[in-house]
Nucleic acid binder design. Structure first.
Lengths: 198, 198
DNA sequence: ATTTTGACTATATTAGATGAATGGTCAAAT
DNA sequence: ATTTGACCATTCATCTAATATAGTCAAAAT
């Protein structure tokens, strides 16, 4: 594929992103997207095999953008407790704006978008790695202490993924905001060295 | 209302409970319920103004049963950390079996059952009271310590209500089971007083 | 050779129309 | 006081026709 054709592919994804974000998967048509870039529906199928694959690509880019920003936080300096706090708050803020991601989690309760499972699994693995990195660093530096670091990572992942749902789908972002700070304090307190009584 | 008619009312609620639990609000008809107790649809309307009111009563009894059992735990002896752990695990176990409650939280994502708001609000307030009781007792006895006890209660409520959703609606009860123990440990650890001394 | 087009097909979705089922009412009967 | 069964209005399920949409492809354009 030439450079120019890749540019068309990008424009397709760009248009698709806008439509999917605004109207969702079902209420966006391939015709809408094609029209936006002054092409015809058939042209999209030169670059993507299906609407599902295109949606997949859009979601992938949405989450990749989040990953890049989270990765910066993980690789930044600062003590691990503070990094974990920044990670959590940034994660929630960025994902709160990720409309297509919201649609996929909402779909979990109704029809399921099985075709995005791979992208979501990748994101899950990314997050597991990042959290493990943060906690490991904290352990090495002597700030944090765990009886089982993997269990702690699992717990944090469960909590982050659980609170997403009321937060994003039921729009309780503001109502729960204070409790999120509280959650971060609690997580920190329980992992802080010399505090853990286990 | 006489004693005998109250007995009929109970039978209505009993039949309604079975149908609603098994088939849900929409797929249960007033005719089904009436037939089960060898009455006619109209008879139910002598005791309840509407299907919604009947469903409300069923949900209320379901949650009242949970409340009674949770109340026993809160009023039991034992140190507050251990009580909080038992409360959390029992709460999840009991609510995991409360089918009508599940339906109402699932409805939050689709159509909302506004007519059960009162019952749910009552349960929320009950829980807030119970948690406040547990934590206050822990504080008085010198086991626990908080910068702001109400914020801690809010946090715990947010977490309990958040994890319900994947747990009950996405049937990840087993997958998350281990992390729930971990959550209880974490909560306990962060509230425990004098954790640095051995 | 690569990319784009527009006509084409098959499938899915919607709109409308009909009939059945259901929530709710009520006067009469028990 | 309680129960009944006929009754009404509205919703819901089912069918059909028409429309819209995803996806294909040979031909045209670049």
């Amino acid at each position: 594929m030439t450079i120019q054709s890749s540019a068309v592919k990008s424009r397709i994804v760009g248009a698709a992103t806008k439509f999917f974000s605004q109207f969702g998967f079902h209420k966006t048509t391939m015709g809408d997207i094609a029209l936006k870039i002054h092409k015809v529906k058939g042209a999209i199928y030169y670059y993507f095999d299906s609407k599902e694959e295109l949606y997949n690509e859009v979601l992938k880019q949405e989450l990749t953008s989040v990953q890049i920003q989270l990765n910066e936080i993980v690789n930044s300096n600062g003590n691990s407790v503070e990094v974990l706090g920044r990670y959590t708050k940034t994660r929630l803020k960025l994902l709160n704006e990720a409309k297509n991601y919201h649609e996929t989690i909402k779909a979990d309760f109704i029809e399921r978008y099985g075709f995005v499972d791979d992208v979501r699994k990748d994101f899950d693995e990314f997050e597991r790695t990042q959290l493990l990195t943060i906690l490991s660093k904290g352990k090495e530096e002597g700030h944090l202490e765990f009886s089982d670091i993997n269990s702690t990572v699992n717990l944090i992942l469960m909590l982050l993924k659980s609170i997403e749902i009321p937060l994003f789908l039921q729009e309780e972002y503001k109502e729960y905001h204070q409790s999120i700070d509280e959650l971060i304090s609690m997580l920190s307190a329980s992992m802080q060295r010399n505090m853990n009584s286990k």
